[in-house]
Amino acid sequence: MNVHLKVWRQAGPAAPGGLVDYTATGVSADMSFLEMLDSVNETLIARGEDPIAFASDCREGICGTFGVMVDGRPHGPDPCTTVCQLHMRRYNDGDTIVIEPWQARAFPLIKDLVVDRTAFDTIIQAGGYTSVNTGGAQDANAILIPKTVADEAMDSAQCIGCGACVAGCKNASAALFTSAKITHLSLLPQGQMEAPTRVVAMIEAMDTSGFGGCSNEGECEAVCPKGISLKNIATMNREYRKALFANR
């Protein structure tokens, strides 16, 4: 099948950008979205044109490297699916697909569909870890954690840091990303010791990185390819409230 593409092309951060029309020909229904873009780039290279720049790594939906807006929705039409796991069988011959990069002040554009997500690293560096000297590996059952709590922590830890929550939020807020890490660590005994300082530091880093605040609309949860729930943001707000009282 053939699909028409409208792809955001922008040579660099300061260069003007806009949608450019392409047609991907001979697209197989079994191709992934990325393979379709690869085929378009091969055509562009053969013609001596600049290929469409995009970042990708595992192509298995677990690294979070490739993330774009597809027809106005982060990661495209399928719920809980990264765009690299979107397959062309989702489309029909003659369809038009609009592809744009994440738009956020905290994610400055590098080129075409590639944005700089260093701001997420800044947030993690502010407190998304446990600074506990672990020593030798201890017995796995030495610290008992109820299965339900471990499951909840794992649900939060599923975040792959792709940035879809920021891209889908009207305020370009990083609340879901930040809260997923805060919740993950605050549920586990290893993370609870530093919970008050962590939540304050990570929220400050989130704000100073240029993200907006949370309006509690939940678009982030709906577009998250890992289904990170809005309850993480409630937990972050609760942890912040507790931290304020703990510091007094």
Binding site: L19, Q103, G212, G218
Partner: peptide, 21 residues
């Protein structure tokens, strides 16, 4: 929120699903 997104998307859809928008 406005300052956090200086450039708007050309195309935008509501996410639906669990969204409370």
């Amino acid at each position: 929120g406005r300052r956090a997104r200086p450039h708007r998307y050309t195309m935008r859809q509501w996410a639906g699903g669990p969204s409370r928008k």
